[in-house]
């Protein structure tokens, strides 16, 4: 199964509750960044270019739990920076799981084996391990050799200990269809990971290598080619079927950045996980004071080449709920994996 039944049921009931309370904007996934420091400097990353005093600031476990409660999203994605650098990451995860959140910890896996004995497998917890390609491509994208092997070893060990392990692949201009096919087959057939999250890279102005980013038209062509491969039918994507169609240019969607609010060490980042127009001190202020209609494809130049899942998965959920056929497809895909 792509995601546990309990998670699918809990999220569905959460969304129904939001709809019944006529909440126009509600969070689905809290993007929690308890620190911005990282042990890598990836070619397409625009998260880590901060002064030393910010990189040295870590959210406390209490601040992380408060953020999760304040926001109310049923899922929490712990990102960063590299979350496994945080000295209390185990406590943060434990506290979020205790609060009934479905937590995924996004990591490059360099420090994973060090933490595995301190974390507990649970149907409320999974790892999402960053893999942008097979060995050569991945190590080139993260600008350090040996990281792919470390990540693969971490995945095997985590799976052996009973953890749910997903992977997160950012597709860049240099990611060829053949390389992606090889990677996803390896994940599905050899490593037997639980699910794949796939998203095109966002053209961060501060990223070290600007050549890795694609224009929107290139993204659509690339995903069309990749997802038309016969092999793609057995890749277990965590991404919703509608989001995958959006990536191929088959459905139109507008960004719903409010679906994935981002809490960083500096506050609630406005307006989304990728763009930075300052920080709101509270979640309430983020939701009420942000001019949401100003952002999105066609509305802001910075959104022109953004098809990232953190902006469009919530849109896919919204759109799925409006169509019974899409709802059934999404249900089947989330429970049985593969592409229906």
């Amino acid at each position: 199964m792509s995601i546990p039944v309990s998670q699918a049921m809990a999220i569905s009931s959460y969304i129904v509750k939001q709809k019944l309370s006529r909440n126009k904007r509600y969070p689905l996934v809290l993007m929690l960044e308890p620190l911005l420091r990282c042990n890598l400097e990836c070619a397409g990353c625009g998260k880590i270019q901060h002064p030393e005093e910010i990189l040295s600031t870590y959210l406390t476990p209490e601040e992380c739990w408060d953020a999760a409660e304040e926001c109310g999203a049923p899922m929490v994605s712990i990102a960063g920076g590299e979350p496994l650098i945080h000295p209390h990451i185990d406590k943060i995860v434990e506290g979020l799981v205790e609060r009934g959140k479905f937590v995924t910890l996004c990591t490059n896996a360099i420090l994973l084996e060090r933490w595995l004995s301190k974390l507990q497998p649970s149907d409320h917890f999974s790892f999402t391990i960053h893999l942008d390609g097979m060995r050569d491509l991945h190590d080139a994208m993260v600008d350090r050799s040996g990281v792919f092997d470390k990540a693969v070893a971490g995945i095997r060990e985590a799976k052996a200990r009973g953890f749910r392990v997903n992977t997160n692949t950012t597709v860049y201009a240099d990611s060829s269809t053949e390389e992606m096919r090889e990677l996803f087959n390896y994940l599905a057939d050899d490593l037997k990971t639980d699910g794949i999250v796939m998203s095109p890279g966002y053209d961060y102005p501060k990223a070290p290598n600007q050549k890795v980013f694609m224009q929107r038209g290139q993204m659509i062509s690339k995903f069309e080619e990749l997802l038309s491969l016969p092999d793609s039918k057995h890749w277990q994507f965590i991404d919703s079927p509608l989001f995958l169609e959006f990536l191929q240019g088959k459905v139109a969607m507008q960004c719903t950045a409010w679906g994935n609010p981002c809490r960083t060490v500096m506050g609630w980042q406005r307006p989304c996980y990728l763009m930075n127009e300052g920080y709101a001190p509270t979640y309430k202020q983020l939701m009420e004071e942000t001019e949401w209609e100003r952002y999105g494809y066609g509305r802001d130049a910075r959104c022109t080449n953004c098809m990232a899942h953190c902006g469009y998965e919530a849109s896919a959920v919204e759109q799925t709920l409006k169509s019974p056929v899409q709802s059934v497809r999404a249900g089947v895909a989330s429970l049985f994996g593969g592409r229906s």
């Binding site: 929107r216 038209g217 659509i220 240019g249 088959k250 459905v251 139109a252 494809y297 066609g298 022109t304």
Partner: peptide, 9 residues
């Protein structure tokens, strides 16, 4: 309309 949306935003 979908094609125009993808192309022109």
């Amino acid at each position: 309309k979908l094609q125009l949306w993808n192309e022109h935003g």
